[in-house]
């Protein structure tokens, strides 16, 4: 296990780190040890803009997927009585995942387009008179696609930890006169925090590392950190891309560490 990890994770990572210090003259990459790639990365206001944009997507998508994920899980665990129905509905949540996520994403394009189904329906119903342009090739479209693609990653872990909550706890609280809201806030949320933390890690890392959804759904109007990297790699500019990858890795690791600091997943799972 350790060997596999070292071979397929450690070594490639070291290569990326090494490349981030290589010199680069516009066409050729030369082994060296220079800080120029990092100097350029930190010296450029584009870096900050890219991170702000990516974090903006991550934050919005995190909040929405968390709300949906929590609600769906709560419904499945506490309102669906029969285990058969519970599992059936849970599996239903995974149905969209039977198709490729590229297809799921791209099918939004004809739906949201200027002459798309949604605009035609709105205009047909007399709600709007002009097609709504912001629906496609916009941040809105990117967020819609992210939420659609990533909500399941929130549902699964939250469902899993909610299902472990002892029902008698909730009954006791109800007998003691707690309101529904207080039960959710003081019993369900604390006891599902492992699932929330794991789901958050999935969603945030997926959004932070994405370039494809942003590219397609924003029509390249928006950029993300990974998309800038992919533009560099396309022009075989490995060293600056590697430097950018190292920085992204550090930032995402810090985010994950912060989540794990709030919730000790390991302890909770062992419980």
């Amino acid at each position: 296990m350790a060997l596999v990890l070292l071979l397929f994770f450690g070594v490639p990572l070291l290569v990326v780190v090494a490349f981030s210090f290589f010199d680069y003259d516009g066409i050729n990459t030369n082994p060296a040890f220079v800080w120029a790639n990092y100097a350029e990365l930190f010296g450029s206001k584009v870096t900050l803009a890219l991170y702000l944009k990516t974090l903006y997507f991550a934050a919005i998508v995190w909040v929405i997927t968390l709300l949906i994920g929590f609600t769906v899980s709560y419904f499945l665990v506490f309102h669906v009585r029969s285990v058969l129905w519970q599992m059936g509905l849970f599996l239903l949540c995974t149905v969209p995942f039977w198709t490729s996520n590229i297809i799921r994403m791209i099918s939004w394009i004809p739906f949201l387009g200027r002459n798309g189904i949604f605009n035609q329906a709105l205009m047909g119903a007399g709600i709007t008179h002009e097609p709504l342009e912001f629906l496609l090739f916009s941040d809105f479209a990117v967020i819609v696609a992210y939420v659609h693609l990533f909500t399941l990653f929130m549902i699964v872990p939250i469902f899993n930890s909610m299902a472990r909550i002892d029902r008698s706890l909730i009954e006791a609280a109800r007998d003691g006169g707690s309101s529904g809201g207080r039960i959710i806030w003081e019993i369900v949320v604390p006891l599902s925090k492992t699932g929330i933390a794991l789901g958050s890690i999935f969603v945030i890392t997926l959004v932070m590392g994405d370039f494809f959804v942003v590219k397609v759904m924003s029509g390249s109007h928006s950029a993300s950190v990974a998309m800038a990297m992919s533009n560099q790699i396309a022009m075989v500019q490995y060293p600056p891309a590697a430097a950018s990858a190292v920085l992204l890795l550090i930032i995402v690791s810090l985010m994950v560490a912060a989540i794990l600091r709030v919730v000790d997943v390991r302890k909770e799972l062992a419980r």
Binding site: Y24, G26, I27, S44, L50, S220, S222, M227
Partner: peptide, 17 residues
């Protein structure tokens, strides 16, 4: 392929961002 290829790509990224 421009001589200032590297600079151009970074500016293009600025444009996209």
């Amino acid at each position: 392929l421009m001589d200032e290829n590297r600079y151009m790509v970074s500016k293009w990224n600025e444009f996209l961002a």
